[in-house]
Structure formats: C-alpha cells, structure tokens
Amino acid sequence: MASIQEIQEEIVEDFSMFDDWMQRYEYMIDLGKSLPLIDESLKTEDRIIKGCQSKVWVNAELVDSKIAFTADSDAIITKGIIAILIRAWSGQKPADIITANTDFIDEIGLKEHLSPTRANGLVSMIKQLKMYAVAYQTQVN
C-alpha cells in the first residue's frame, strides 16, 4: 500500500488536472460517490462529526493494525471532502495518521474555496479522524 504522503501527492496531481473550481467540485462529487459507505446501522449520533453544518457519519475499525474508515454525508460536497480524507488515510497505521500533515489540502486549494462553515467542517473532520487514530494507537502498541 502507498504511504500517506504518496497518496496525498496523487490527490494533488489529480486536482491539478482541472482548470477551474467548477471542475474540481464535480470531481469531489464523483469522489464522494465512490466513498466506502458506512453501514446504515452505524449512522448513529455518536458517529456524527460535530462542527459540520451537514451530517457526516464516520466509522473507524482497526483491521490488521491499520484503520479502515467508512463514512457518509447528507450533502454531496461534504461527502466529497470526507472522501478525500479517507482516500489519504484509510488503510494506514494509526501512528502515521496522527503524524500526517494536511498540507495537501492547501495545495489543492480546497480550504480557500469552501464557505466558512464547510471549512470549519473540514477541520472537524480532520480532528475526528486523527482522534480515531489516537484511540486505536493504544491498541496497536
């Protein structure tokens, strides 16, 4: 499996193929459609990411010392945002997720092209995924 850094570089490269933000939004929507969906029974209150205007559910499971994330959202752009993070971090070791930087988000220009509420939601998503990694880190060591 590719490292987080390699996957993030792929994401930056993918976004650089598009000339404008309408095309990038369309790409994000497509990413959201390919997101590994959370099981309906796991769409519970405790899995909703706080701080997002839309509803975003995330589940994390430890599989062979790596975290497998699944998610869903009731908003298509938000679903695309969480899909980007899951693409970068799912299937990785907790320690690598904890220490992963998020510079690639700035490199693709995502934060600056989101409304303030969506940008806050992005920060909340990052925090929540990293909190799952911290929780699972103790089980790996």
Results as ranks from 00 to 15, higher is better:
63 V>H: 14
13 E>M: 07
77 I>G: 01
126 I>R: 08
29 I>A: 02
48 I>D: 00
30 D>V: 08
65 S>P: 01
95 A>K: 04
53 Q>E: 12
41 S>T: 11
10 E>N: 15
18 F>W: 06
80 G>N: 04
102 T>E: 14
17 M>E: 07
108 I>V: 13
54 S>K: 13
32 G>L: 07
141 N>M: 07
76 I>S: 12
67 I>G: 10
35 L>Q: 07
11 I>K: 08
115 S>H: 09
9 E>Y: 05
35 L>E: 01
26 E>L: 01
36 P>L: 10
11 I>F: 10
92 Q>E: 07
68 A>M: 13
83 A>L: 08
74 D>N: 14
115 S>A: 12
125 M>D: 02
128 Q>A: 09
49 I>H: 07
39 D>T: 05
67 I>C: 12
72 D>E: 15
62 L>N: 13
30 D>H: 11
97 I>H: 06
36 P>Q: 12
123 V>G: 03
73 S>V: 02
15 F>I: 05
96 D>N: 04
70 T>Y: 13
113 H>K: 04
73 S>H: 04
25 Y>P: 06
32 G>D: 00
7 I>V: 15
124 S>T: 00
57 W>M: 13
129 L>H: 11
10 E>K: 15
135 A>C: 02
55 K>Y: 14
56 V>Y: 15
80 G>Y: 04
100 A>H: 14
114 L>T: 03
14 D>W: 03
101 N>I: 00
131 M>F: 03
83 A>V: 05
41 S>G: 01
71 A>V: 07
111 K>R: 15
121 G>V: 13
118 R>V: 04
1 M>Q: 07
41 S>E: 06
108 I>K: 13
2 A>I: 13
132 Y>A: 06
8 Q>T: 07
1 M>R: 14
120 N>D: 10
86 I>G: 03
29 I>G: 05
127 K>M: 01
66 K>A: 14
119 A>Y: 14
110 L>M: 15
95 A>R: 02
56 V>W: 15
50 K>N: 14
110 L>S: 10
64 D>V: 01
85 L>T: 01
8 Q>F: 03
84 I>E: 02
71 A>T: 12
127 K>G: 03
131 M>D: 08
